[in-house]
């Protein structure tokens, strides 16, 4: 009886998902996955063929966001060999992308001036089903505009990553997720120097999933979960009272 109930719930969830236009691409997953973060997504896999939104509030966070996105793009580009990076004021330094598992010569940068042009180019690129991922850098994105992008990817099954740098408002958009990435002090285990890039990854919104916060490190060409060490006093040091 218990089992049947569980089955029914799962069946209903799947139906609800398909009604909500979440069409998982069968058999397609991220190359290595995101570790523990995967559990936050419906069906435990990063939603491909959808538009994701990243918000960064300052230059420092923008670098962390770019790093996290580059890690994602590196995994997404296992299939196709070319990706588009569309931006108005590009700050990306291509040689550094090699660190995140991307061959920088496989990225085509489109450097534009106006917000409108960026949006048009992103939409056109998202319609091109040969690409697997398109990265767009914007600051403002209205709901209508995001809806257009979402409709485009529903046809073409391209994954879009939209990086919003210092948006005026964090308005509601039609993207499946909203992320905020911030730098954390790197772990060096007492050794001198700077360690691997470490980020505080905040998943603020996710359609049909559970938002959460994680600490992630980029090491050895993949995302690595860091469990924050909770500060606790060992038992023998606590004073016994009473």
């Amino acid at each position: 009886m218990q089992l049947a109930k569980h089955d029914i719930i799962q069946q209903l969830q799947r139906e609800a998902l398909s009604m909500q236009r979440h069409k998982g691409i069968s058999g397609q997953r991220l190359h290595k996955g995101l570790g523990d973060i995967d559990n936050a997504f419906p069906e435990h896999t990063f939603p491909l063929g959808a538009v994701h939104e990243f918000i960064s509030a300052n230059k420092e966070n923008a670098a962390a966001t770019n790093g996290f996105m580059a890690g994602l793009v590196g995994q997404l580009m296992q299939k196709s060999k070319l990706a588009l990076w569309i931006s108005a004021k590009r700050t990306i330094y291509p040689p550094a992308l090699k660190m995140f598992g991307i061959a920088p010569e496989r990225i085509v940068f489109v450097d534009l001036c106006k917000q409108k042009e960026v949006l048009w180019a992103i939409e056109e690129a998202l319609k091109c089903n040969v690409l697997s991922v398109v990265i767009g850098e914007l600051s403002e994105l209205s709901f209508t505009e995001s809806r257009r992008l979402q409709l485009a990817v529903e046809q073409s099954r391209v994954t879009g990553l939209i990086h919003r740098y210092t948006p005026r408002t964090e308005n509601t958009v039609a993207c499946v997720t909203r992320w905020k990435i911030a730098q954390l002090a790197s772990e060096t285990n007492g050794l001198p120097g700077v360690g691997f890039p470490k980020w505080n990854v905040e998943l603020l919104k996710v359609r049909n999933g559970r938002p959460g916060t994680w600490q992630i490190e980029w090491s050895k060409g993949g995302f690595k979960e860091i469990t924050p060490q909770t500060f606790s006093i060992s038992e023998n040091l606590t004073r016994k009272t009473g």
Partner: peptide, 23 residues
């Protein structure tokens, strides 16, 4: 398909907007 996409972008927004880098 990609070349055609880039043509469209270059046609509308200018030839100099598209860049790819080599070491």
């Amino acid at each position: 398909a990609i070349a055609e996409l880039l043509d469209r972008i270059a046609g509308k927004l200018g030839e100099g907007t598209i860049r790819r880098y080599l070491p």
